[in-house]
Design a protein around this nucleic acid. Structure first.
Lengths: 194, 194
DNA sequence: CCTACCGATCGGTAGG
DNA sequence: CCTACCGATCGGTAGG
């Protein structure tokens, strides 16, 4: 692992756990095992570091679900998409937590920029789910007045489970092995035909 | 409004928006319209201020749903409980956001203390919902293997909608007037008989 | 509720 | 990647 990679990993974890303002460059350097000044050989500023981490995290997340883009049975694609989000969150909890922090925790123009790209990303996700719902409706797999309605429910459930997974409530583990039953319930609630 | 009340209001809003570490006592004082040193006549430290706000926020939240404790039709009580949470979040967004921030954003022993009480509170909520589900099952209103399963789903949906409401995504407004249809879908997904 | 002040730490730079 | 240093701001206190 290169120093740069260690900086990124450690910074993601620290920002996610203690917030942006709550993480000092000295502490980050200490945890990486170098001096604070050396960090500035990799990033010109603390803000630039955060923005790069958020951008990288979001494209990694998008990429992880990109493979779902190909056609196929809408119902099955929704199911796989659902699970893939939690698979990514399990593999890279610090990335998901960082994005959450960056989009909800930082004031000023830096916060606006982070929020902007995170909101954009999440918007794409909802659109994609709504599109899959539309196709499911076409194929008689789902009944709804408007595909955006089940898509909103989908978003709420995913966000809620992520919250519980990320922030280590005692119930986090409870969701872990119940995702498939949860999906089946969600499918029904979305108007899915069984 | 007394100075103390203004301090509490402003601090909740600032902590929620910029994080604990991201909010300085000088900025808080400035926004309240007094000098920084004067804050220390009301609270002995920044930590004490946060802890008091979290404690107050949580008991206000509990109180708001306390009126739901009396008996009655389980299904109706679940429905009212569901709506009451968002009614509280609409009336006091800064309190809900503050609790979220306090329980996910602060490292060290302060964070642990805040997280501890927030987790406890949320645990009570899930237990209460599970108990209502158990009663609903008894009365033949709901079908499930274990009342904790629909209760988990309930929690995920509530958390997810709160996230979207609090952090002002473009979809926040979309949930606003769709809570009752959302509840109906959730009820079905919980195994509720229609 | 204020002025005046404390030591510590912040993000960041110079120069090697 | 380091030592040495910068001005600014941090949480908090003394004393009124």
């Amino acid at each position: 692992m290169t120093t740069l990679e260690r900086i990124r990993d450690t910074a993601s974890t620290l920002f996610a756990a203690r917030g942006y303002a709550g993480t000092s460059m000295s502490r980050l350097a200490g945890q990486v095992g170098i001096r604070k000044a050396s960090l500035y050989n990799y990033y010109p500023s603390k803000e630039a570091l955060l923005q790069d981490l958020v951008a990288r995290g979001m494209s990694a997340w998008t990429e992880a679900s990109e493979s779902l883009q190909e056609g196929g049975d809408p119902r099955e694609r929704l199911r796989v998409y659902f699970h893939s989000i939690f698979a990514f969150a399990d593999a890279h909890p610090e990335i998901v937590a960082l994005i959450r922090v960056a989009s909800t925790q930082i004031g000023g123009s830096l916060g606006k920029r982070c929020r902007g790209s995170a909101v954009e990303e999440q918007g794409r996700m909802v659109d994609e789910v709504a599109e899959l719902c539309r196709r499911a409706m076409e194929q008689g797999q789902m009944e709804a007045a408007d595909p955006r309605e089940p898509a909103l429910l989908w978003t709420a459930v995913v966000d809620g489970v992520l919250m519980n997974k990320l922030f280590a409530t005692p119930r986090a583990a409870e969701f872990g092995d119940r995702l498939e039953p949860l999906w089946r319930r969600l499918w029904v609630a979305m108007g899915g035909v069984t």
